[in-house]
């Protein structure tokens, strides 16, 4: 049975929409569940301010939900758009967009749940810190949403840029790779940044006097744990905007798809690892603020070593794109 290309483009868009929403729902649900569990623990500890804790839980969950809403938006656009150009390239781009947003929302959804939960616990411990804790929670969750926003940007570019002039064969693999690079790399960074933000909410509630130092080290640690997703974004842009000579060889297509997978998978571990290091450094700056500079130095040295594997992955991806 012969199926014309217009139907295949629809197939790719519908599969992409399903993957975007299905994968994208994983993270936010886990993160919100964590926030609700911690909020329950907090209310049982300090039932007198249950209204405040309940409000804070809802605000925190709303931020964690954002990642899933991005997935919903991308999914709906994929379902209801009309595609004028029908080719293998548009199939790859639409499937890539769905995968990118789906994977990209997982880390941010889980990550934003940690600060929400820890802030609820913190308000139960120190009710007079509620304003500062809310601010801290919002800053921390906003940073851990960034990887989901990167994924959404890449997904929109894949859906709406016009690639019709490009040669069919390496370009379609490159676009699928571009989606996977940012999507997969965002998992680690979102989760890692959330760990650091959670520790800062807990630390600010334990040691309200050190809240300034805690926020500073949280932001530095989160910035480092964002880098793997920025590497993913970089590789996605290179894959989308490089012009390829037309090639019917399977090798040329596979090299570009593999470049996306390499930076994407390679970013997961370092993103989470950097976040763990930042989490511990933030916790101990809260408890022992006099050692802030020593802790900052150790955190950055530890993160630099953990980052190296993401850099190896990026180097291999660049070799696959430019040397092969």
């Amino acid at each position: 049975m012969a199926i014309e290309i217009e139907s295949w483009v629809k197939v790719a868009a519908f599969v992409g929409a399903g993957l975007s929403m299905g994968l994208g729902a994983i993270g936010a649900a886990i993160g919100e569940g964590f926030a609700a569990a911690k909020a329950n623990a907090a209310i049982s500890r300090n039932p007198g301010i249950s209204g405040d804790i309940f409000k804070l839980m809802l605000v925190g969950q709303a931020v964690a939900e954002t990642a899933a809403i991005f997935s919903l938006v991308i999914g709906i656009i994929l379902l209801f758009s009309n595609y004028s150009t029908a080719s293998i390239i548009s199939m790859a781009a639409l499937l890539g967009a769905g995968l990118c947003m789906g994977f990209g929302a997982i880390g941010s959804g889980v990550g934003s749940g940690y600060p929400a939960g820890e802030a609820c616990k913190g308000v139960a411990r120190q009710p007079e810190m509620r304003g500062r804790l809310t601010t801290n929670m919002l800053i921390g969750s906003a940073v851990s949403q960034t990887p989901a926003i990167f994924s959404m940007v890449v997904a929109f570019m894949l859906m709406f840029l016009n690639f019709s002039g490009a040669p069919l064969h390496p370009t379609s693999a490159a676009l699928l790779g571009a989606g996977l690079a940012t999507g997969l790399a965002s998992i680690g960074s979102g989760l890692g940044s959330g760990l650091a933000a959670g520790a800062s909410c807990e630390g600010s509630a334990r040691q309200p006097l050190n809240v300034g130092n805690i926020t500073v080290i949280m932001l530095v640690g989160q910035a480092v744990s964002q880098t793997p997703s920025i590497f993913g974004l970089l590789i996605s842009f290179v894959l989308m905007f490089k012009t390829y000579p037309s090639s019917e060889l399977l090798g040329a297509s596979m090299a570009l798809l593999s470049a996306g997978l390499c930076t994407g998978f390679g970013g997961i571990g370092p993103g989470v690892g950097n976040g763990m290091t930042a989490q511990s450094a933030v916790t101990w700056v809260a408890r022992n603020v006099r050692q802030e500079s020593v802790l900052m130095r150790s955190m950055l040295v530890g993160q630099a070593v953990s980052q190296s594997t993401a850099i190896y992955a990026m180097v291999i991806s660049l070799a696959l794109i430019f040397l092969i």
């Binding site: 680690g188 890692g192 793997p228 390679g266 997961i268 571990g269 370092p270 993103g271 989470v272 690892g273 950097n274 976040g275 763990m276 290091t277 989490q279 511990s280 450094a281 150790s298 955190m299 040295v301 530890g302 993160q303 070593v305 953990s306 980052q307 594997t309 993401a310």
Partner: peptide
């Protein structure tokens, strides 16, 4: 990446 992050933590 994960392992080195745990060591750093």
């Amino acid at each position: 990446g994960l392992g080195e992050g745990m060591v750093g933590a």
